[in-house]
Computed example of a mutant assay.
Amino acid sequence: MLVRLMYASRAAESVGQDELPAILRQAKARNAAAGITGVLCFSGGIFVQVLEGGRMPVNALYGRIVADARHREVALLSYEEVGERRFAGWSMGQVNLARLNPALLLKYSETAALDPYAVSGRVTMALFEELVATASIVGQG
Rank of each mutant, 00 (worst) to 15 (best):
R70K: 14
E52F: 02
D115F: 03
A118K: 10
L24F: 03
V66Q: 09
Y7I: 01
V66M: 08
A32K: 13
T124A: 14
L127H: 01
L100T: 04
Q49A: 00
R25Q: 02
P116F: 03
L77V: 02
D115P: 03
L5C: 06
I137Y: 05
S9A: 04
A29S: 14
A22L: 15
M6E: 06
E84G: 12
G141E: 06
G141C: 03
T124R: 05
L40M: 08
I137W: 07
V15Y: 08
V58I: 10
V138F: 04
Q140M: 13
P116E: 07
K107F: 07
P116Q: 05
I46L: 10
L51W: 00
M6S: 02
R10S: 07
A98E: 15
N59D: 14
I65E: 08
L51C: 00
M56G: 11
R10N: 12
H71Q: 06
K28H: 05
V74L: 11
V74W: 07
G89H: 00
G89Y: 02
D18M: 08
L24M: 14
A75D: 04
L20N: 09
A33H: 05
I36N: 11
V3W: 04
G121H: 08
Q49K: 06
A69L: 08
F42N: 09
A112R: 09
I36H: 04
N59A: 13
A67I: 06
S43M: 15
K28Q: 12
A118Y: 09
F87A: 07
V138Q: 13
Q26N: 14
M56Q: 13
A75I: 08
V58R: 00
V119N: 11
T134P: 00
A118P: 06
D115S: 14
D115L: 08
L61C: 03
S43F: 02
S91L: 00
L5Y: 01
V95K: 13
V138M: 13
A60Q: 14
A12M: 06
Y62I: 01
E52R: 06
R70D: 11
A112T: 01
A67W: 10
G83K: 09
L106H: 14
L114S: 03
T37D: 06
D115C: 13
Q49P: 04
L5V: 02
A32I: 00
A11V: 13
V66K: 14
G89R: 12
Y117T: 01
S78G: 10
A135V: 00
A75Y: 02
L20C: 10
G38R: 12
L100D: 01
G16V: 12
L51A: 02
A135D: 13
